[in-house]
Each structure stands twice: as C-alpha cells, then as structure tokens.
Amino acid sequence: MSETAPLPGGLQEIADDFAAMPDADKLQLLLEFSQELPDLPDRFAEHPELLEPVPECQSPIFLVTEIDDDSERTVHLHFSAPPEAPTTRGFAGILHEGLDGRPAATVLSVPAELPLRLSLEEQVSPLRLRGMSGMLARIQRQVSERTAAGAE
C-alpha cells in the first residue's frame, strides 16, 4: 500500500485548496491565480527573445527561469501571458505561487501529472489542462539544463 506522495514546494497546499473548494467556486480560485501572476520584470519585458514560447497552451504564453548561485540553486519563474488568456495565466499563477523561490531540486521533483492533481478536470477539461503540462515540462527542462551547465 503506497499513498501518493505529497506535491513538492507550495503545490500541495494549492491542490488542497482546490480540492476543498466547492465545484462552483473552483474557477474563481483559478481566476485569482491568474490575477495574482506578477508582471514580467523590465529586464525581460524589454527582451522578449529571452523567453521561451509554450506551444502546448491554447493561448500565447512565454516563460523563463533564473537560477541563483546559492547552495540551493534557488529558482525564479517569470511568465508573460495576455489578459485575454486567463486560463493560461491561472496555470502560470499556480506554478509561480507553488515553485517560485524554491530550490532547483524541488522544481525538478514535481511529477508530470501535477495538472491532474488539482481537481480541475471537470471544470476546465483535460484537454485544456495539457497546457499546464507543457509549461511544467519547459520549466523543468530549463532548470535541468541550467543547473547542469552551472555544475561544470
């Protein structure tokens, strides 16, 4: 008998919040995440070529990761998505809230099935949730490449 391991970083708390929310209010919570997504810092807003597109999402979204030179290799996440794409912004907001400022090892340990553990399939649809998988996969690839490069 093995129980599902809790999600890393701040993600389990977010998953618990969604699970506890009545179905009718789950979209409102996702909307709050979309509204809380921070704007891009100027150094990226002025250099959009530094951001990576996420074609898995239905709407245009770009992301970039930065990694500190500290012992934990702290990860910072930045996203850019237009206001007419609130669902995509909401996914980005969840990832930002749950993973920004966490160690690289924590970010890399997020299971690929994360989108399916947020109790959102019925309100959002599995097809739409694939966009979040695409974002997570790209974040993890960037972090993986950047920590490997830094170790050489």
């Binding site: 979209l27 995509t88 309100q123 959002v124």
Partner: peptide
C-alpha cells in the same frame, strides 16, 4: 469561449455562459 475563464473576467451584461467542453 475557448478559454474557460474568460467569461469570469467579464461578460456582456446578462449573458449566460455555456462551455462546449464541459
């Protein structure tokens, strides 16, 4: 809409939402 949250950000007054997917 395609985006399932767009209606929640603001809609035509009195409009109801119907989502194709869900």
């Amino acid at each position: 809409d395609e985006d399932v949250l767009l209606y929640e950000t603001g809609h035509i007054p009195g409009a109801v939402k119907i989502d194709w997917h869900t």
